[in-house]
Every structure is written in C-alpha cells, then in structure tokens.
Design a protein around this nucleic acid. Structure first.
Lengths: 258, 258
DNA sequence: CAGTGGTCTAGACCACCAA
DNA sequence: TGGTGGTCTAGACCACTGC
C-alpha cells in the first residue's frame, strides 16, 4: 500500500498540492509530524513509552522502516529517547543523568554537588513591551517574574531572572520553586505540562552593577557573563525568557562546536 | 557473503574479539571507520567527491543501505556533504555559504560584510607548558603564534592569539594570513592540508587590560568576552589553540541549545 | 521466552542534476 | 538519458530487556 503519496484516514492532509509549490514531503516526514502532534497533545506524557515501531507502523499503514526513520529524527532532536529492548520514551528533564541539559556553566576543575537555590522574588506583573515581544504575548498581559540565586558550595554563582506567560503558569509560587528537587524544567513538566524543547542564547560580557555585585558577592564593576535565553516548547512557541548573570572566576561556559 | 561478522579483504580487523570485551560493532560503523581512514589519508581532498554509494558498497562488499548509514553519520558530523543528484563531497571550510562555521559572534542587528584582518604578529617560538599541554606537544617544541585584530565596518571587534604546531605549519607567514580571502581554516586546508573538524570553547567574562583596551578601542577595564578555543583535526588530534577577546557592545555570541 | 529496538539486505521507484 | 542521492518496502536476523 501507500505507493507514492499515501492517503490513509490519518494523513489525508498533504494530498493535494497548492499550485506553484512542489509540496512534496517524504512519507516519514508526514509520520514524524503525526507523532509530533500526539506528543504535543499529550497523548503520551514525558517519561512514558510511546507505542512500538510495529504498532505505529500498523496505525499509520506504513512499513516499520518508515516509522523508524521518523523516530530517528525525533530522537536526534531530543524529543524522544530510544532504549533497546525496552521501547521509545518521551524525553523528560526529570530523569536526566547528564546534569542539566541547558546549563552550560561548568566548574573550572573538579565536580560539584547540586546547586543551592535561593528564591529572591516571585511575582505576577504586566508584560513590558520587550518581554511581551519575546514571549509572543500582548504588552500588559500577565507574566510571572522570578528572581533567584544559584550557589555552588556556598558560593553564589548565578543570578537570574525568568519571565513566564501568566496564564500557563498560574499557580507558580516561590515555595514550589524552592522546595522542588532537580531541574526547574522538570517542575514545569510536572506541574504545568510545559516541556521545553530547545532554546536560543545570546551571550555578552557585562560589568556588575551595585545590586548585582552584592547578590553575587563580587566587586561592583566586576565582569560577568550575561546569558539571555529564550526557551521554546513544541511548535516553536516561546515559553520562557531568562536573563542570567554568571560568575566566571571559578566556572566557565562550555560549548562544543562541530 | 558478510552474513554476521563479515571478513572481506578490507575489514578483517574486527573479527576476533579481545576476551572480556563484547567488541561488537555494527557493520556500518566499521564501514564508517574505513571511509574515515581514507578521509584522513587524503584519498579524497576537501571539496572533492567521494565515490558513489554503489561504488563504496561494491568496494567494501556490503549493501548500498549499509554504506548509506555510514555516510549518514559522517554527514551528521559535518565531515562530508551530500548533494542530491551530484554526489557526496568532502566538507571544506572554503565554499561555505553559512559564513564562518566556528565563529558564533553575530551583530546585534543587521548584516555586515566580511571582517577586515590586521595581523599584528606572526612568529615562531618555543611552546610554554600550557600551550604544549593543549596542543599535545612537548614543552619547548616549536609553535607558531599569531596575533590579529578583526574589524567589522572599521570597528575593531575581535582580538585573538592563535598557537599552531610548528612542524605542521612550517611556512606560515603574516603575508599569507593577511592576503588570503575567506576563512582562516580554509587557508589551513589549502596550504597545510589540515582540516579542522570540531572544537571546544571555554567562555568567560574578563576585564580589558591596558593593551587589550587600546587595540580594541575600549576603556581599560571594560568587560570583554574571553573565548578559548581548542580545535581538532581528524582522530581528535588538537591542532590549534586560540584565545579570542570579543567586544559585545555591538555583537553577541549566539548559541542554540537543543 | 516474547517483545522491543538495532542491523542488514535486496529491490523498486522517485527527485535532482548534468551532459 | 544515465548517474547520483533519497525514499519506501518486506523480510530476516541480532542484541537487549524483563517475565
């Protein structure tokens, strides 16, 4: 079946091409899109197994190899994790052995335990023009702002502000943030059903102002790494704006190029 | 042929497993290794086409699909570039539409032309302990040190020092570096047969000292982004240590996380 | 042992490119 | 038109996991 362009009950969408556009998309891309939709819709929750390749192949009326290629791409994008002999699982920020996936700050030498979190502030306010633009909401819409300090071995190392869309993160409190164990993004998954999928960072060197210097216990004017991060959920929807100030006298931001 | 563990003339290496180790490696991984060897040996030069999938399949006595999977991985690692209808080509830093692949500093707004290069220094010297360790040579071995400034639109933006192994980069001169068009890594490919494959960067915020400030036309003590890069050729051999100081008042270091 | 993902094959056909 | 990479299939077998 499904010789050239298949038209099962589940994927009749791409059948007629708009004039002028080639609009050819490989079968496995269409399958990938369908799996993605189920992922977004929450048909399978983070940490759960998705159906086996054979099951999905039967469901979409394609061969197992085609499903395989679709899942290969989802795995390459870290949306899904394969485990031989067990199944394929929805990726999660919770059970991640590799520390925090989005935090690229590492100690210059040695290891260190988990970060100590100090929540300085957590309040609801109206989005400024700048925050609204980043989060793709309207100026004046409700947003949650969180300010906190992360310390390693008692040394304050990161000062960061986060802005989150108010209607998605309704019940977020400072207590929740302080008491929760593990990555903050895991909390977002568990409590708000929001899964961060990718992010863009803009990095600069800046001088600490008086308040920042006091909170990070450095001299005023000391050079700090400014990291502005915009995180996205499925479908390229921006969900978090974060501005971090990193001390880089004992840590550095590590990046691998290839 | 090649039923479980193949043993053709070309890949008899992995046949007997060392005791204690499972030592199972998929066929396509072995093929990938063989192609990699040819790449390192320079059997095909950067920019040239490698043999077609069918040719390689015949050469290694495996199916076309197996070669395909091997090349897929090489392409994912940017060692090779596929072009439908034309062939598969050895990746090069020369003909790269996407600006400079390893330079993540982008202007805050708008576009900009190519960088203007000013070579401040290019000399042969003995490796310090630190440089020797990074480049995996012996302390006191010959290394080439280059210092230069990159400007955009007349504004000096990057000050960087590079250290290169002296015996590989024998004839390197300031003139060569100044006159060459395009990425420096393209020059290294053309003149010295060295292809940079990946790199690691350690990023910090630092304060400009008097000399740095003068060269970059900023105030002494101004915050600058310090980028220490170690670049590798094939086989994880380190080939270049680079220390860059970036002005981030008009540019920023951009990074995508996923 | 059955079920899952992982590898390998062989063959058909499609999309793209160049001569 | 022929050659290249790209897609899709069907089936066999392997490696890993858990019952």
């Amino acid at each position: 079946m499904a010789t050239s362009q298949p038209s099962t009950a589940e994927n009749a969408a791409a059948d007629q091409a708009p004039p002028g556009t080639p609009a050819f998309s490989p079968l496995y891309q269409q399958i990938k899109g369908l799996i993605l939709q189920s992922l977004e819709a929450g048909e399978w929750k983070p940490g759960e197994a998705i159906p086996s390749e054979m099951d999905l192949a039967a469901r979409f009326r394609v061969s197992q190899g085609t499903v395989r290629k679709a899942i290969d791409e989802l795995a390459a994008e870290n949306l899904v994790v394969r485990r031989q002999g067990k199944g394929t699982f929805v990726a999660t920020h919770s059970e991640q052995h590799v520390r925090y996936r989005f935090l690229k700050l590492v100690p210059d030498s040695g290891d260190e335990g988990p970060a100590q979190r100090t929540i300085l502030d957590c309040r609801r306010l109206r989005a400024s023009a700048e925050v609204a633009r980043a989060l793709a909401v309207r100026t004046g819409d409700s947003v949650v702002q969180v300010r906190r300090v992360l310390s390693f071995g008692g040394v304050p190392t990161i000062l960061e502000d986060m802005w989150l869309p108010g209607n998605t993160f309704k019940g977020l409190t400072a207590e929740q943030l302080a008491e929760h164990q593990g990555p903050t993004y895991a909390l977002f998954e568990l409590e708000f059903g929001v899964r961060m999928v990718r992010a863009e960072e803009k990095i600069r060197a800046v001088a600490a102002d008086a308040q920042q210097a006091q909170l990070l216990e450095v001299d005023a004017g000391a050079p700090l790494l400014s990291v502005e991060r915009l995180s996205y959920t499925y479908n390229d929807v921006p969900m978090e704006l974060r501005r971090g100030l990193y001390r880089t006298d004992t840590h550095h931001y590590r990046n691998d190029l290839s």
